[in-house]
Protein backbone atom coordinates (compact mmCIF):
# COMPACT_ATOMS: atom_id res chain seq x y z
CA UNK A 1 0.00 0.00 0.00
CA UNK A 2 3.07 2.24 -0.16
CA UNK A 3 2.41 5.58 -1.78
CA UNK A 4 -1.33 5.48 -1.49
CA UNK A 5 -3.19 8.38 0.07
CA UNK A 6 -3.28 8.12 3.82
CA UNK A 7 -0.36 5.75 4.32
CA UNK A 8 3.25 6.42 5.25
CA UNK A 9 6.38 4.50 6.04
CA UNK A 10 7.91 4.37 9.50
CA UNK A 11 9.02 7.77 10.73
CA UNK A 12 7.77 9.73 7.72
CA UNK A 13 5.39 12.66 7.77
CA UNK A 14 2.07 12.47 6.00
CA UNK A 15 0.13 15.25 4.30
CA UNK A 16 -3.20 15.80 6.02
CA UNK A 17 -5.91 18.08 4.65
CA UNK A 18 -8.87 19.44 6.56
CA UNK A 19 -11.02 22.53 6.80
CA UNK A 20 -9.69 24.82 9.52
CA UNK A 21 -11.91 27.70 10.64
CA UNK A 22 -13.63 27.59 7.25
CA UNK A 23 -10.43 27.48 5.18
CA UNK A 24 -8.94 24.47 3.37
CA UNK A 25 -5.66 23.61 5.08
CA UNK A 26 -2.91 21.06 4.57
CA UNK A 27 -0.35 20.19 7.24
CA UNK A 28 2.42 17.61 7.47
CA UNK A 29 2.22 15.30 10.45
CA UNK A 30 3.97 12.24 11.73
CA UNK A 31 1.76 9.55 13.22
CA UNK A 32 2.28 10.52 16.84
CA UNK A 33 1.62 14.25 16.33
CA UNK A 34 -1.59 15.46 17.89
CA UNK A 35 -3.93 18.04 16.46
CA UNK A 36 -2.67 20.46 19.13
CA UNK A 37 0.89 19.99 17.84
CA UNK A 38 0.06 20.86 14.23
CA UNK A 39 -2.40 23.66 15.00
CA UNK A 40 0.12 25.44 17.20
CA UNK A 41 3.39 24.65 15.41
CA UNK A 42 2.27 24.88 11.78
CA UNK A 43 -0.88 27.00 11.85
CA UNK A 44 0.21 29.25 14.74
CA UNK A 45 -3.16 29.01 16.42
CA UNK A 46 -2.09 29.53 20.01
CA UNK A 47 -5.64 29.56 21.37
CA UNK A 48 -5.39 25.75 21.31
CA UNK A 49 -3.53 24.93 24.51
CA UNK A 50 -2.30 21.78 26.07
CA UNK A 51 -2.99 21.42 29.77
CA UNK A 52 -3.15 17.90 31.12
CA UNK A 53 -2.43 16.02 27.89
CA UNK A 54 -4.87 13.24 28.80
CA UNK A 55 -8.28 14.68 27.85
CA UNK A 56 -9.29 15.74 31.29
CA UNK A 57 -8.89 19.54 31.48
CA UNK A 58 -10.39 20.87 28.24
CA UNK A 59 -7.75 23.55 27.52
CA UNK A 60 -7.18 21.96 24.10
CA UNK A 61 -10.88 21.80 23.15
CA UNK A 62 -11.52 22.05 19.41
CA UNK A 63 -14.74 21.46 17.50
CA UNK A 64 -14.48 18.51 15.12
CA UNK A 65 -17.38 18.57 12.67
CA UNK A 66 -19.08 20.82 15.21
CA UNK A 67 -18.61 18.60 18.26
CA UNK A 68 -16.16 19.39 21.08
CA UNK A 69 -13.21 17.03 21.31
CA UNK A 70 -9.83 17.06 23.04
CA UNK A 71 -7.21 18.22 20.53
CA UNK A 72 -4.51 16.54 22.62
CA UNK A 73 -6.09 13.12 22.02
CA UNK A 74 -6.64 13.45 18.27
CA UNK A 75 -3.89 12.07 16.08
CA UNK A 76 -3.36 14.79 13.47
CA UNK A 77 -3.16 12.16 10.71
CA UNK A 78 -6.72 11.09 11.53
CA UNK A 79 -8.11 14.61 10.96
CA UNK A 80 -8.16 14.11 7.18
CA UNK A 81 -11.36 15.55 5.72
CA UNK A 82 -12.69 16.88 9.02
CA UNK A 83 -13.96 20.35 9.79
CA UNK A 84 -11.97 21.84 12.66
CA UNK A 85 -12.93 24.98 14.56
CA UNK A 86 -10.67 26.68 17.09
CA UNK A 87 -11.33 29.78 19.17
CA UNK A 88 -9.77 31.83 16.37
CA UNK A 89 -12.75 30.77 14.24
CA UNK A 90 -15.38 32.21 16.57
CA UNK A 91 -15.15 35.88 15.60
CA UNK A 92 -16.62 36.95 12.28
CA UNK A 93 -14.64 38.06 9.19
CA UNK A 94 -14.48 41.69 10.33
CA UNK A 95 -13.01 40.69 13.68
CA UNK A 96 -16.24 41.25 15.61
CA UNK A 97 -16.37 38.98 18.66
CA UNK A 98 -19.07 36.34 18.76
CA UNK A 99 -21.84 36.72 21.33
CA UNK A 100 -20.18 33.92 23.31
CA UNK A 101 -16.86 35.75 23.59
CA UNK A 102 -18.70 39.00 24.32
CA UNK A 103 -20.63 37.41 27.19
CA UNK A 104 -17.44 36.02 28.74
CA UNK A 105 -15.86 39.49 28.53
CA UNK A 106 -18.91 41.25 30.01
CA UNK A 107 -19.01 38.79 32.91
CA UNK A 108 -15.22 38.64 33.31
CA UNK A 109 -15.65 34.88 33.17
CA UNK A 110 -11.94 34.18 33.47
CA UNK A 111 -8.88 35.20 35.39
CA UNK A 112 -5.70 33.89 33.76
CA UNK A 113 -7.74 32.79 30.68
CA UNK A 114 -5.73 29.66 29.89
CA UNK A 115 -8.93 27.59 29.95
CA UNK A 116 -11.12 30.19 28.24
CA UNK A 117 -10.82 29.12 24.60
CA UNK A 118 -11.86 25.62 25.62
CA UNK A 119 -14.85 26.93 27.57
CA UNK A 120 -15.92 29.15 24.64
CA UNK A 121 -15.91 26.24 22.18
CA UNK A 122 -17.70 23.87 24.54
CA UNK A 123 -20.27 26.60 25.20
CA UNK A 124 -20.81 27.09 21.45
CA UNK A 125 -21.94 23.48 21.09
CA UNK A 126 -23.86 23.50 24.37
CA UNK A 127 -25.99 26.44 23.16
CA UNK A 128 -26.82 24.62 19.93
CA UNK A 129 -27.46 21.29 21.58
CA UNK A 130 -29.55 22.36 24.58
CA UNK A 131 -30.93 25.86 23.86
CA UNK A 132 -33.02 25.78 27.05
CA UNK A 133 -30.33 24.26 29.26
CA UNK A 134 -30.94 24.44 33.00
CA UNK A 135 -28.10 25.53 35.30
CA UNK A 136 -27.64 21.84 36.15
CA UNK A 137 -27.32 20.92 32.48
CA UNK A 138 -24.82 23.72 31.89
CA UNK A 139 -22.72 22.45 34.79
CA UNK A 140 -22.92 18.86 33.60
CA UNK A 141 -22.04 19.74 30.01
CA UNK A 142 -19.10 21.95 30.98
CA UNK A 143 -17.93 19.68 33.83
CA UNK A 144 -15.10 18.41 31.63
CA UNK A 145 -13.56 21.88 31.29
CA UNK A 146 -11.46 22.83 34.28
CA UNK A 147 -10.69 26.37 35.45
CA UNK A 148 -8.01 26.38 38.08
CA UNK A 149 -8.56 30.07 38.83
CA UNK A 150 -12.04 29.10 39.96
CA UNK A 151 -14.09 31.37 37.68
CA UNK A 152 -16.87 28.82 37.51
CA UNK A 153 -19.62 31.03 38.94
CA UNK A 154 -18.84 33.80 36.45
CA UNK A 155 -18.68 31.29 33.60
CA UNK A 156 -22.08 29.97 34.68
CA UNK A 157 -23.40 33.55 34.77
CA UNK A 158 -22.05 34.23 31.27
CA UNK A 159 -23.59 31.07 29.84
CA UNK A 160 -26.92 31.71 31.59
CA UNK A 161 -26.91 35.22 30.14
CA UNK A 162 -26.20 33.81 26.66
CA UNK A 163 -29.02 31.31 26.92
CA UNK A 164 -31.42 34.09 27.89
CA UNK A 165 -30.25 36.47 25.16
CA UNK A 166 -30.44 33.84 22.46
CA UNK A 167 -33.93 32.90 23.57
CA UNK A 168 -34.98 36.55 23.57
CA UNK A 169 -33.58 36.99 20.06
CA UNK A 170 -35.32 33.84 18.92
CA UNK A 171 -38.65 35.07 20.33
CA UNK A 172 -38.37 38.71 19.22
CA UNK A 173 -40.76 39.82 16.47
CA UNK A 174 -39.05 40.23 13.12
CA UNK A 175 -39.57 43.22 10.83
CA UNK A 176 -41.99 41.16 8.78
CA UNK A 177 -44.06 40.44 11.89
CA UNK A 178 -44.23 44.16 12.74
Amino acid sequence: MEGEVGTNVVGEALEVSFVLNGRATTVRARTHHTLVDVLRDQEHLYGVREGCGVGMCGACTVLVDGEPQSGCLILAVSAEGREITTVEGLEDASGELSDIQDAFVRHTAFQCSYCTSGFLLATKRLLEEIPDASPHEVKTYLAGNLCRCGSYMKILAAVTDLLERRRTVALAPTKEDA
Binding site: G55, V64, P68, Q69, S70, L73, I74, A122, G144
Partner: peptide, 9 residues
Protein backbone atom coordinates in the same frame (compact mmCIF):
# COMPACT_ATOMS: atom_id res chain seq x y z
CA UNK B 1 -17.58 8.18 31.08
CA UNK B 2 -15.03 11.02 31.23
CA UNK B 3 -16.49 14.19 29.66
CA UNK B 4 -18.38 15.32 26.55
CA UNK B 5 -15.18 15.68 24.50
CA UNK B 6 -13.91 12.20 25.20
CA UNK B 7 -17.38 10.72 24.69
CA UNK B 8 -17.54 12.42 21.29
CA UNK B 9 -14.45 10.48 20.19
Amino acid sequence: VANVRVRNA
